[in-house]
């Protein structure tokens, strides 16, 4: 609960630009109805209003569901994958809806994502496309069935078409065939790196994982995937 409130506070600070002040907790609860359940502090005007509202709703006996609490009683830690995996950050909270939109938080979330991208300090964006291809093919990593000592894969082919020779590609994401035609300008390098690091910097509530931000891939691995996309010698940029 404490963690969730802190996360909510962070979401609030993103939204309003200031997370300070004594009314933080109460406001955070109002931004996140899930956190509100079980929070009985009704000692402020807004809190009292919320309590009154839930009293009214109690007649219909339909409380707002709390998926986080349900998951915590429905899952068990296994092989190093613990319940802390369920802790949501502000972006996950904002994007957990049927519309797939972060609403009025989108701008702040996008800016925060952009500001946190760690670009290579030495300006070296491109590694070895062959290693990148192996990373793109590898769907393992961070599952309780995986060996935590093995490097994570990027699993790019799960969602994207890349090399011409690989027909077993998914269609969740756009085709990246001939991505290298976009060139290697600094803007292109930074955009591609940033998109892999944290796609929400460009499209909030993207379905793509935050490969850099979440520590799924290392900077070196991202360099290799960058080369797979941009190296003219990469099969992504060959006719077949």
């Amino acid at each position: 609960m404490m963690k969730r409130l802190m996360i909510s506070l962070f979401a609030l600070s993103l939204m309003s630009g200031c997370g300070q002040g004594g009314n933080g907790e109460q406001s955070a609860a109002s931004t996140n109805p899930q956190a509100q359940a079980g929070n009985a502090s009704g000692n402020t005007e807004q809190g009292a209003q919320a309590d009154a509202a839930s009293d009214t709703n109690a007649a219909s006996a339909v409380m707002a569901p709390d998926p986080d609490a349900i998951l915590r009683t429905s899952m068990q830690a296994r092989n190093g994958v613990g319940l802390d995996r369920l802790d949501q950050d502000s972006l996950q909270i904002a994007c957990s809806n049927a519309e797939d939109r972060a609403g009025d938080q989108a701008g702040k979330l996008r800016e925060a994502a952009m500001a946190a991208i760690e670009f290579p300090e030495d300006g070296n964006y491109l590694g070895d496309w062959k290693k990148g291809e192996a990373i793109a093919q590898n769907g393992r990593g961070m599952q309780y069935s995986d060996d935590p000592d093995d490097p994570n894969g990027g699993n790019c082919y799960a969602c994207h078409e890349l090399a011409a020779g690989e027909v077993a590609y998914g269609t969740m994401g756009p085709s990246l065939r001939n991505y290298g035609q976009r060139g290697q300008s600094e803007a292109m390098l930074k955009y591609t790196w940033g998109k892999i690091w944290n796609p929400h910097a460009y499209m909030v509530c993207s379905h793509m994982p935050r490969f850099g931000e979440a520590g799924i891939l290392t900077p070196d691995q991202i360099r290799h995937v960058m080369a797979l996309l941009l190296d003219p010698a990469s099969p992504v940029n060959k006719a077949e």
Binding site: R85, A98, R210, I216
Partner: peptide, 10 residues
């Protein structure tokens, strides 16, 4: 639950 995002992959 269906729309609930969580975990390192979101």
């Amino acid at each position: 639950l269906f729309y609930h995002r969580a975990g390192p992959y979101d």
